[in-house]
């Protein structure tokens, strides 16, 4: 059986898990191509106009998978990975949206509800509802889930030691970490270190964010993202808040952001968000308050489906110039 996985949304956090899981069940895993203009346009065409661009891309990727002779597209219903917290409603309704809102996808979607009390989503109960469609037994699912868990933990370990999720995925897949390490070596010592705050699907999709990571590296700027921090570090600043956000990944970003605002080695913070992102509209405001209090420079960059990249280049250069002046002249 061939299972398609769209290269979008939580692909950048859970793909190593899902890949290993389905492969352990003797399925073939097909991933959609890297995001391109065609995928984006397909997504825009099939989705409601107001929805955020990451969702449009997800739909585009799902449609693209239809050309790849897959049997099913795996669209998990992400409900909660932390007790008392949820995912953004768009994640919780994702299978409904694809099934009922996109032509040609009904009958092609395989889904299950992911409920867990930590990032580790390997509890086999989550996947039992798929057993019948996949034609496997519960025992097989248990084994597959534990194999997948190993893979995912390895991936997260590389990720947390300072590699981007994309690099970490390569390292775990090729077992050749040395090559990535060598490629990653910067020619000279970075002049600045910034916090790059944003969801994995915004930060790691080079088409969506016009390759912001490469742009920063070219300017010799080192960066840290939320997924490079340990869970305890993320929780430190938010555990005393009276009411935290309801969305797990938003909370992780908030925890990461608030922490980085207080870290002396960090010169500035960039918040990368998507047009119309609901959770970010509130989180951005919290960062603005924090920036006012700490005096650490803060910029938010909002991406959407338009693809002119000059404005981004200019804004990042200006921000970096300003940080340099602040650091070296003052």
């Amino acid at each position: 059986m061939k299972i398609g996985i769209p290269r979008a949304l939580l692909y950048y956090y859970y793909f190593p898990f899902w890949k290993a899981f389905f492969e352990a069940l003797d399925m073939e895993v097909v991933v959609s191509e890297e995001t391109n203009k065609g995928i984006l346009n397909k997504g825009i065409k099939e989705s409601v106009s107001e929805i955020c661009v990451p969702i449009k891309l997800y739909i585009g990727h799902a449609i693209q998978l239809l050309n790849k002779e897959i049997d099913y597209i795996f669209v998990p219903r992400m409900v909660s990975i932390q007790s008392g917290e949820y995912f953004c409603p768009k994640f919780m309704g994702l299978p409904d949206m694809l099934r009922h809102g996109v032509k040609g996808l009904e009958g092609k979607i395989i889904t299950c509800q992911i409920k867990s009390d930590s990032d580790d989503i390997s509890a086999p109960e989550n996947y039992y509802p798929m057993a019948e469609v996949l034609g496997v037994t519960k025992e097989q699912i248990q084994v597959a889930a534990s194999v997948a868990r190993e893979q995912w933990i390895g991936f997260r370990m590389f990720n947390k030691s300072g590699f981007t999720a994309v690099e970490a995925m390569k390292m775990i897949q090729t077992n050749d970490s040395l090559e990535v390490l060598l490629n990653n070596q910067q020619s000279s010592k970075p002049v600045l270190r910034i916090g790059l705050i944003g969801y994995v699907y915004n930060i790691y999709d080079p088409f969506l964010n016009m390759n912001i990571i490469e742009k920063l590296r070219e300017l010799n700027v080192d960066f840290i993202t939320f997924d490079m921090l340990e869970e305890a570090q993320l929780q430190e600043k938010i555990k005393d808040m009276e009411k935290t956000l309801f969305w797990t990944f938003s909370n992780k970003l908030l925890g990461a952001g608030l922490r980085l605002f207080h870290e002396p080695t960090i010169d500035g913070i960039i918040h990368l968000t998507a047009f119309g992102c609901g959770p970010d509209s509130f989180m951005g405001k919290l960062f603005e308050f924090e920036s006012d209090q700490t005096g650490v420079p803060f910029m938010s960059i909002r991406v959407d489906e338009h693809t002119g990249e000059n404005h981004l280049q200019t804004r990042i250069e200006a921000f970096v110039d300003m940080l340099k002046r602040k650091k070296f002249i003052a």
């Binding site: 929805i51 409603p89 309704g93 409904d96 949206m97 009922h100 809102g101």
Partner: peptide, 17 residues
Amino acid sequence: PFGCLPELISQSVIPKM
């Protein structure tokens, strides 16, 4: 409301309904 998270999902399924 513009950009309402849950209602965007209902808007997506409404044409079929």
